[in-house]
Each structure stands twice: as C-alpha cells, then as structure tokens.
Amino acid sequence: MEIRLDQVSHQYDEVVVLKNICLSVPSGRITCIVGPSGCGKSTLLRFMGGLEQPTHGTLTQLGSPPDGCLNALTYIFQDFALLPWRTVEGNVGLVLEDHRLSSAQRASIIADVLARTNLSDFATALPKQLSGGMKQRVAIARALAVNPAVLLMDEPLSALDSQTRELLMDDLVSLWSRTPFTAVYVTHNLQEAVRLGHQIVVLSRRPGRIHEIVEVDQPLETRTMTDPDLQKKHDHLWGLMREEARAADAELVHG
C-alpha cells in the first residue's frame, strides 16, 4: 500500500506548522523523515496515521492493504506505550482482541511475532521487568501482530542508549529483509536515517516544507556504518540540516 500526500498544510491557531507537503510513501520501502526540532515531523506522522487532520490538503492511500491485515496504518511510539498491567503476550494480544479470530489463531500470531522479535522467552514478563530495548521490541512485535500495511514510527529508538539502538536497528533491518514492509520513520538521528531509509525526506524548519529528498539505493542488509558512500550521504544530509537546525535553535531563543 502507498500513501500520497498532496499539498498538505497545517496550522495550530496562528502557528503554521507545515506548508505544502507533497510526498509519496512508496510501497515496500522505508521513508525516513528528518528535520529540526518542532518542524512538524510528528504532526505529519499523525496525519498519516489518521490521528489528526491537516487544515489543508489531502492524504490518500493507494491500493488495498494485504490479506490478513488487521490495522493498515500502525504506529510504533517513542515511549513504547505498553500497558504496564499486561504481560508481554497480553500487550501483543490487546490489539487482536477486537478482531474475530479464534483463540488458536490469536495464540499462533502472538507466538509468531514474539519469535520474530526474539521475545519468546519473555512472553509472561511484565513491562516493568524489561529494559528499554526489550520494551521497544515488544512494541514492534505488537505492531507486527496486526500485519500492517504501513508502519509509522516516531523516533522509535530515541529513548534508548546508543548500543541498544544499534541492536534494534539490526533487528529492524533483518525484519525488513525477510519481509519488506512499508514504513515511515521519523528521526533526529541522521545515522539511523542513512542506515534504514530508502528515501530520506529533509524538512526545513517551521513552517516545515520539503527541503530535499535524498534517495539511498544500497540494499539495507549491506549497509554498514563505515561505508564511504553512506558517510557521504550522511555528510550531505548534515550539510542540509545544519543551517536549518541553527536557525531553528535561534528562533526558539527569540521566541
């Protein structure tokens, strides 16, 4: 499934947050959105997930979700959003309970996604017993359980330490390599963007417009941190971001 944004603009009261965003999120690829703080990345993602509506412009979903898809547009949150009173399998099960599934089907979906995220041994643990990285893997498992057409991730790794982040990036890469999914991935971190993105959308500071779209063609599995090509992309992105970030920073200071 594909998402197309046409002339999307948005303002909160007087503040114009996004202006004339035209973007296509292609099927089976990861689209990264980067941009300075407060430029409207999270807002854009909320539009795509149908949690909020833009003041102008339209969002269209092209094509139909895959068979067995229970929730076409599925979120992964920065702060995990796990129910603390449910176990790992209970948290995954939560999103299946409103659908007509037999308990055997439900159990097999849960077992499958927990196996894919290496969580099988922790099925009965409570969130308070898990580290941050594990919690985010539970959230990823929960998102996979509904077999989404598009995964919407808002800084999914930024609450984690850098080593855990590396590990989870590897996990995401291997998940994608096994079964390519469509994803929109919002991040501050340019390294994450060049590592995971097939298409990297750079937004300008508020009001957010599309500054540039950078394509990275190299297959995900072969990307490494030391790759000179990727380093070049990274530096290019940083060159684009630098001025914006500085200006955005100064803007906040001046109110």
């Binding site: 949690l51 929730n71 547009l73 959003a81 939560l94 999103v95 409103d98 509904v146």
Partner: peptide, 12 residues
C-alpha cells in the same frame, strides 16, 4: 499516550 495507542490500533 496509552489511549492514543489504543486508538491508533483501532480498538473500539
């Protein structure tokens, strides 16, 4: 955020 999570998964 938990409520928003529930809505984003289409819970009734």
């Amino acid at each position: 955020t938990l409520i928003r999570m529930g809505q984003s998964f289409g819970l009734s």
